[in-house]
Structures are given as structure tokens and as C-alpha cells.
Write a protein that binds this DNA or RNA. Sequence first.
DNA 1: CCGTATTTGTCCGTATGTATC
DNA 2: CGATACATACGGACAAATACG
Lengths: 251, 251
Amino acid sequence: MNSNDISMTDETAALRGDGIALWRRIGDALRREIADGTHRTGQRIPSEAALAGRFGVNRHTVRQAVAALAQDGLVRTEQGRGTIVTAKPIDYPIGPRTRFSEIVSKQARAPSGRLISASEAEADVEVAAALGLSRGDRVLRLETLSAADGVPLNVATSWFPADRLPGFVAHYAETGSITKALERCGIADYHRRETRVTARIANPEDALALKIEPGSPLIATESVNTDPDGRPIQYSLARFAADRVQIVVQS
Amino acid sequence: MNSNDISMTDETAALRGDGIALWRRIGDALRREIADGTHRTGQRIPSEAALAGRFGVNRHTVRQAVAALAQDGLVRTEQGRGTIVTAKPIDYPIGPRTRFSEIVSKQARAPSGRLISASEAEADVEVAAALGLSRGDRVLRLETLSAADGVPLNVATSWFPADRLPGFVAHYAETGSITKALERCGIADYHRRETRVTARIANPEDALALKIEPGSPLIATESVNTDPDGRPIQYSLARFAADRVQIVVQS
DNA sequence: CCGTATTTGTCCGTATGTATC
DNA sequence: CGATACATACGGACAAATACG
């Protein structure tokens, strides 16, 4: 019997006994506490020193437990700040009526959109093809950042036919919503025709905008929205932070 | 007037004049040639020196053009070997009837499937939930590699209810097709219920199996297939090489 | 801007139980 | 049975990032 047994708390005693490593039992205990809401998403869990005291173990043992949780994506550790419970990835269902703000609202989060930059230019080959325009036609190009509860979810580059949408940029800047901005331009409704999904590594700019590490995985989507008449109204290349969003396809 | 003008070919002359940089025009020219099949996927385009000669520009100008194409993923440059036209990612449409072999065949490629490993085990919580079983029920666990024209497209870990599929592993090993193996076990048809898509970085094992660099982006999908009665028959976690496959969602 | 406290990250080491040959 | 390797657990010291007054 060593000194640890003496300083052992009831909590630790209950965790000892069979052939499962201490760090794993502590990890599971923390896992349960995260699941049942003792530690809320976005909030810090107690410091390693505090947990070590509470479980009556060495700090390194707690570290191993926390590292296992981090490996599973339940928490993330930040030097100097603490260990924060990771927000679960948001479900992003894709269908004929894909609306960022509705998707986020339905999951009890506050959607927001911010204009990074906007410009008017001539359509290049790909944009013209996607929007059913001729090469050289005037298009609006918007760089936008969408977030849930203030956490960036995606950056998107979108193109719109300029002549059909007077004042669009101002409307978006004001409302932070593509849906609302289109509405103000007389497009009451629109539909998602097709979405292509691939994966990519975040470049420094996207990483900065999304507040993730450069080199993190992104979900890259290419999509076209059409007005009720089936005419393309928006062509988008969006980049989602892969650890915050999960695309859901229902069949 | 410099020496370039003297050696300028008709081709270059046609490219000059307005306010678009030379390298961009050369890049667009190459882009068209790749699009119209002059340079085929997987094949080398002419050397930088040859292109410089043909367009009557300095090699550095060609390099900038090629770099732009590489940035867009149309070509990849390999030191000492040349510039190779990147294989276009295969379209992988997801819908109620998602069949690997059909998808690949339709794009004029030869599908193949290979068993990496198989085992029988007890269902853990997640597998049991996905397949509608109880924890501890017997399940088959298959690790498979699917390819098109011999190029690996994805590795997948799939679980099946063991008691409903006698001889399944042998059937798959023989046919290299989940569809055919299920058929032989009396499941004539099946449907995709839901697919969740996210992105990830390839771990060393997946990278090895897919013959990509560790650290390359993967498209990770989680899906459930059901038999005609709606009972889950397959739960899969698949990892696609992101630069070879593009998920397509039609709405 | 500076110093201090807090917190995680990394390195050194020691001891012990367990699995394997 | 011994020899060996490996994971586990502990102890301590310092570095690095962050927060705060």
C-alpha cells in the first residue's frame, strides 16, 4: 500500500479495481460529465491540477485522460487557457431548400453572416457556365463568412448575375443573409440544384477567416441555386471547417 | 521592339493586345487544350522549354502560367519528370441507389473491390445503434478497398449483421462487390438511407492503402444501407481520396 | 508596458504491473 | 523460470501561452 491510497478520494476508490487503466476510467468519467452537461460546450473544464487533486492522481495521468478525449474531438486544449469542451459539429443537411440561417436556427444556434469583400467583374468561363451567362457578362462576386453563435462555420465565394440584382451587396451587408438579400431584390424563393462536395486543406487565408489552424481539413462545396423559373441565380464555392460541420444527405 | 516580338508566332500574336497578362492568356490556352483533349489526363504536357518556344515567350512566363494551372489542380508538376495533366475527380453521386460499381462503370472506368481484412465481432454501441441491433450481437466487420481502373478511390470499414449473411465474406472476396455478395445472401436490393459527409486528414494506414501522401485530405462518409423492408443491412465508414473523387448531391 | 499568476506543453527520471518469448 | 519489452503511474522542473491588474 502506498501513500496514494491514503490520499485517495472516494471518487478514485470507486474507479479502481479491475483491469482498466486509471487514465481510461478518468477519461470516461469526464466523458460522462460532458455528456450530462456538467461541463458545457464552449466552456472550460477544471484545470489538470484541479482534476488531479479531485481524482487523487498525478497530473500526467489526467493529461493522458484529457488527451484521449481530445483525440476523440470532445475537447480541445489550449496552452495557457485551459481545456475547452468542443462544440459538436453542426448537421448541415443538403437538399432542394438549403438555407444557412434555417439550418443553424433549427439547431438552437444563432446564425450570422458577414461580408468580407464584394466586387463587380466580368464572368469568366466557369462562372458564366454555372450561371448560364455569356463570358464577360457582369457578375457580382461576394466573399462572405457565415457563423453560428459567433463561431465561423464557412467562408464562401459567391457569384450572382449583376443586372438582375440591383443593390444586392448593400442588402446583404445589412441583413447578413443571402435569402433576405435576394428577397429584397425580388427573388422570393430559390432552390438548390446540385451540390458537389470534396475535401481540401485550409490555405492561410481561409484558416484565418475561419479561425482554424492552417492545414486543417475543409469541406469544399460547389453549388448552384436557381430561381423558381429554374434560372441560376447564385453560384457558390464554399469552404466549411470540417470539425464544426457535417454535411448530411438524405435519400 | 525586343527579340521576343521577332520570334513571336501567330499563336502568340493572337494572344497579345489587351490588358490581360501574357501568362494568364497562355494559361487559358493550355486550359482549353486540356479541356478539349489535346492533352489527355495522366499524360505529360510539352516541356516548359517547348511551350516557351511555341508561344514565343520566356520560360518564366510559361512557368507562371503552369503554376496557375497547378494551383487550380488541373495539372501537377513533378521535378525531373514533367507536368502531368491531373486525372479529373470521379463524380460520385449519392442517392437512394448508390452503387460503387455502377457509378464507376458509368464514367467508363473499371471498378474493382478488394478485401483488406474481415472479422466477426460483437457490435459496440455505435454499430449496434446504426444497424438496429443490440450491443453484443454478432457482426461482420469488413475492411475494403475500392478502385477505378486500378486507382484506389476509397477504403471503407463496413459492418453487417452476421446472422443474416452466412458466407458473406467469401462472396465478397470472390466478387469484389458488396452488391453481388448481398445478392448471393438473398438481399436482392438495398437502399441508401442517409449519408453524412465530412473531411479529414489521411492517417498513415489510409494513406498507404489509397496510395496517397499521409496528410492528404480525405472525404469521410458515414452511411447506412437498408434492405427493401427498411431494416439496416450495412453500416459504413468510408474514406475517399479527395483529389480523385467528388461527391455529387442532386436535389 | 511590465510583472505575476494560471494553465497547458515538454522534458527529465523512477517504479511497477503485464505480456511475450 | 528468467529476460525483455511495453504500458501505466508517479514525481519534479521548466518552457510557453494566456489572462489580469
